[in-house]
């Protein structure tokens, strides 16, 4: 496999792991997908106020604090399952890349009722350090703005 192909596969794997780790609530491992300087944003465009909104913007320490405290919160008991498309990856140089990936996120209540929760895209920036690709910026753009339930857990 060429180096380019390996990098491509590595980035696609990071995106798939992102979703899988959230679905299984392995939050420490999820945070480890971020570069030390990396950050996470949940954004949406409001047609009501006609502007982009940041619903959450957190660096690694803030994400860690929030996810460490998840157990202390009262939470939506539904299980979540991501369905993630094939990332479209563009390399900026040997150590940076951008990727766009569509995703949908489903909720399944404890009674077993499933429903679509969020549709959106990941618009990510990656950086390669020490041979590993990680998020420099993991941006989740939510098309869905009327949510069935709110969540402390990243999307």
């Amino acid at each position: 496999m060429s180096s380019h192909q390996e990098d491509l596969e590595a980035i696609r794997t990071v995106v798939q792991r992102t979703a899988a780790l959230l679905d299984t609530e392995q939050f420490s491992e999820w945070i480890s997908l971020f570069d030390a300087e990396g950050s996470y944003e949940l954004a949406a465009y409001s047609t009501e106020i006609r502007r982009w909104m940041t619903w959450q913007l957190s660096d690694r320490p803030a994400l860690k604090q929030m996810l460490d405290e998840v157990g202390e919160h009262v939470r939506d008991p539904a299980r979540r399952r991501h369905v993630v498309g094939m990332p479209f990856v563009e390399f900026t140089d040997d150590a940076t890349a951008r990727a766009t990936t569509t995703f949908s996120l489903f909720r399944t209540t404890p009674e077993g009722t499933s429903s679509l929760y969020i549709v959106g895209s990941y618009e990510d920036q990656f950086i390669k350090r020490d041979g590993a690709w990680r998020y420099a910026f993991h941006r989740v753009v939510s098309d869905t703005r009327v949510l069935d339930a709110f969540t402390h857990i990243p999307v």
Binding site: V74, R75, T151
Partner: peptide, 13 residues
């Protein structure tokens, strides 16, 4: 916010 510390808990209540 929708991912805030308080709002999701208020809605559940």
């Amino acid at each position: 916010g929708p991912t805030g510390r308080n709002l999701p808990e208020d809605v559940l209540a």
